[in-house]
Amino acid sequence: MSTNDQPAAPAKPVLAQPAAPGKPAAPSDQTAIIAKRWRAKRGSLIMALHEVQETYGYVPRDVALKLAPQIGVPVARIYEVLTFYNYFKTSAPGKFVVSVCTGTACHLKGSGDILANFSAQLGCKEGESTTDKLWHLQGVRCIGCCGIAPAVIVNGKVFGKLKPADVGDVIDKVLTADAAAAKV
């Protein structure tokens, strides 16, 4: 095995923002581009799936099926990887994904009550989405924000040092920021 099967320069950082829900994307074109980018690089299935998820917000079944022959990996291996790793989603999440850290430090500082309050105020259980698909609530493993425990991440934005009573505020802030972004 030689090192020549790697390109000389690193792949451009692939960090596309998740597509906004409802934004149309042409699955076949997009899949072909992703497959082409990663096909020749050894061990890149996970990187390719990251790009799919960044494009669609999850890994749709039809995209996975199209990707398999184009990237030269059996469908079974794609699903083996998708279902092993917690980060990959096989169904569309809510518009706002609320990740409540359940790590040791956050647990100490009352993350259980934070999770319970989100569950009550959003009206959905942990690991589930609201019926309008606007919110998805999940407990996640330590996110490394132990210094500002208890911490919650909503679509990449971190809220730290929360009290159970702050949950309503967080929900309001997310909705206000979204409304403001929609106006621009």
Binding site: P10, G43, H50, Y85, N86, F88
Partner: peptide, 20 residues
């Protein structure tokens, strides 16, 4: 290639995990 004319070459690739 050939870092600072030393003759030594190194490439670095970043690989993302996925939550495990």
């Amino acid at each position: 290639e050939n870092i600072q004319g030393s003759g030594y070459s190194l490439d670095i690739y970043v690989h993302r995990g996925a939550g495990a």
